[in-house]
Amino acid sequence: MIWQLDQFVLLLVVICAVAVITVRDLLSAAVIFGVYSFLMCLLWAKMGAVDVAFTEATVGAGISTVLFIAAIFRTTRRSKD
């Protein structure tokens, strides 16, 4: 991979990681976490760990995002206390 592209993806990973823990909305956090997982998948594939990249893409970006959204679906928007 071209190193400029590599640095760009790394920068996006850091931005996504910070955004996940600072954003207020849970649904946004789940979606940004999916983006983070997919960028990590790109980095794994670039480093030659295709098996890890495959797992990251299926579990990290696919199933865990759906499970997070299913859990958020059970919550209410405003807390009652």
């Binding site: 797992t55 299926t58 696919g62 199933i63």
Partner: peptide, 8 residues
Amino acid sequence: QGGVVLGA
């Protein structure tokens, strides 16, 4: 991985 894809 294949099991996860099947489940998905």
